[in-house]
Every structure is written in structure tokens, then in C-alpha cells.
Computed example of a mutant assay.
Amino acid sequence: MDTISTFARRVGLTPSALRFYDDCGVLRPAHVDPDSGYRYYSADQERDAALLRALRQAEVPLADITAVLAGDPASAREVLTAHARRLRSRADTAHAAVEAALRMVEQPSHGEVSVGGAELASAIRQVHPAAARTPEVPELGCVLVEWTTEVLRLVATDRYRLAVRELVPHRVVGPPNRLLVPVDAMVAALPWAVRHDAVRLVAEADDASLVADHPGDDAATGEVPLPTRDGNYPDYRRVLDTLAPHTCRIVTTRTALLDALAAAGNPVVLETGGDTVHVGDATVSAVCSGTARLAFDPAVLAPAVAAGVGPDVLLEITAADQPTVVRSADQGSFTTLVMPVRMDQ
């Protein structure tokens, strides 16, 4: 067996750290001399000590470290997965705060992001159904448009739904930025955007506009002004990062699901059944992993299903009281969250 100093050097920990972990009951020495109180460690403990060092570097709390060291692999995986979600949430929150600080410090008077016109039109079409159409909370009647050098993101929510579409920008000028654009203005710009190969969203100090990169001969169609609003938009990143892992996945034909929702009452109960999903009184063929039974307002779920791309739709279900993720089965850059409603027993 090794003395505490020798063992500490071998595993990359300090003797004081090993004494601390002994006092906390996280990593006990293999033997303690009853006369001198010296601690001794065995070679069998090197794996736990190395794992302990890695977990502390990852900022895992001591209580969770004890569960990882003492538990089975499945329990350890569950603890570490939950910790990873917390770290991502903290990192995203810090990133958003830094971006906000950059906007305040740099006070950009000009910024722009370029993207394909058809891509932008598709993104507007996908997210706008999730925006609120009532005036109680003005920010929810807007589409959040934000960009960095790596991504242009459109977000809309009415607190019952959350839609997020990401695009890869062709070019970005200026620092990261974000705008709140009333949803009606975004929808009005949709047919204009689809007629242009590439468009630029230009943000000035007090206004914004969409500008065609190649407006053609008719200069009147080369630019569309966009009104903007001030306000605090909900922290959609936190919502996405705190989603629990799904327990059931359903892949089904989009049109069949929409037809079933159109014929259903409110609320409509969705229930898996082998290779089918029951939607109210209708039965739709589906590929299901796991089981689920939950209810939706069809007027809320149907637009989320319709907004996707391709013939199939994917539903990822966590629980009857947790948001359901609605995705296009072949397009990962568009995500909608839909809240279930209370089921009639």
C-alpha cells in the first residue's frame, strides 16, 4: 500500500485533497494506522481517485460524486447526464449575458446578416404560427431575430408553443445582435423574401430593413422596412436546455396526423398502440418507441405539425404535463415545443 503522499502523486491529487475526501466520506483510505493516524491507499483505489479528479474538474458536486462512485453504471450515467444539462444551461445563460453586454458596450449603429431569400421565407412560415396574436404581452406578438457569426435564429412563442428555426448565414457584419420584429411585419415580408435569391437583414440604430442583394431593375422592390420593438423576450434557451429526456417517440405521416386533428374534438387524446397512434377517434399508422397517452388542443398542435418540412413528422414525448417536441423527421434545424392540456378522465 502507498502512503498518502505517494498515492497523491500517482493519481494527480494533493494530500490535503485526499484528507478532505476522506473526511467527507467520498474516498476512504484502504487502511488507517491506529497509532499514527497515517492513511494508506491501495492500487485498487487508483481508478476511483482518477475518476474523482475528473469529476471535480467537471464541477460535479460531492453528493453526486458519491453517487457516481458507489452506484451502478446506469445510475452514474443518469447523474452525469443531469449535471451536463445544468452546465449547458449555465453556459448558455452566461453566453446570452455576455452577448447582451457586448451589445450595450459596443452599441452597434450598423449590423447586417445575409441569408437565402427562400430560406428566410421558409423560416418565417415555420415559426410565425407560434407567436401570440393577442396584445396582453407585446413581446410575444413578435418574432425574435438574433444572429452571431455562426447562426441566424428565428424564435416565436405564445407560452403554449415555442418554435425555433436556425439558418446558416452567408455573411455577418458587426457584432452579435437581436431584434424583436412584430409577427405581422415578418409575415408581410415573406412573399417578398421568396422572390430574391439572397437578402440582407440590416439593423441600424433605430430601425431595420430587409434588402435584396440583387434587387434587379425595379429598385422599389429591393428593400422592405421592418419595424422593431423594445422589450424583454422570454429566455427560450432555458426552456430548451431544461427539457427532460423523452420517453416516447412517434414518427407518422404529416397529412394523416393533420387530417385526424382536423376531425377531432378539443381536447384530443393521443395514445400509442403498437404500430399506430390513436388521435381522438381516428387511428394513424406510426412508428412508436415507448408508450404515451396525453391530450392537446388541436388548434395549437395542428399548426406546429403543419409548419414542418417533408412528408413525416416526429413527436418526442416526455410526460403528459411536459412540453412535447415536434420536429420534421428530416430537418433538425426546426423545432417546435407544444404544451399538452389536461386530459378529461
Rank of each mutant, 00 (worst) to 15 (best):
26 V>E: 07
312 D>N: 10
171 R>K: 14
310 G>D: 01
166 E>G: 03
294 L>E: 01
287 V>P: 04
43 A>E: 11
88 R>H: 06
233 Y>M: 04
166 E>L: 07
288 C>N: 12
2 D>N: 13
49 A>M: 11
114 S>D: 13
285 S>K: 12
144 L>P: 10
161 R>G: 15
232 N>F: 12
286 A>I: 09
78 E>Q: 14
224 V>I: 03
248 C>P: 08
328 S>A: 07
140 L>V: 06
220 A>V: 15
54 A>S: 13
321 D>Y: 11
310 G>L: 00
193 A>S: 06
23 D>K: 08
17 A>T: 11
69 L>M: 08
324 T>S: 11
294 L>Q: 03
155 V>S: 09
234 P>R: 05
233 Y>N: 05
67 A>K: 02
222 G>N: 06
92 D>V: 07
127 V>I: 05
218 D>C: 12
308 G>N: 06
219 A>R: 12
170 H>I: 06
290 G>M: 06
236 Y>N: 10
185 A>T: 00
262 A>M: 00
308 G>L: 09
235 D>K: 07
63 A>Y: 01
317 I>Q: 00
76 A>L: 05
262 A>S: 05
95 H>K: 10
333 S>K: 05
20 F>R: 04
171 R>A: 12
81 T>F: 14
126 Q>K: 09
264 A>K: 08
144 L>I: 07
110 H>Y: 07
97 A>F: 01
104 M>R: 15
191 P>A: 00
226 L>W: 07
20 F>G: 00
98 V>H: 15
94 A>Y: 03
297 D>Q: 06
327 R>K: 05
336 T>Q: 15
138 P>I: 11
310 G>M: 00
23 D>E: 13
343 M>C: 03
4 I>T: 10
255 T>F: 01
84 A>G: 15
301 L>E: 06
257 L>N: 01
10 R>E: 11
189 A>L: 01
343 M>I: 03
109 S>M: 13
141 G>R: 14
207 D>L: 06
73 P>A: 03
319 A>S: 15
207 D>G: 07
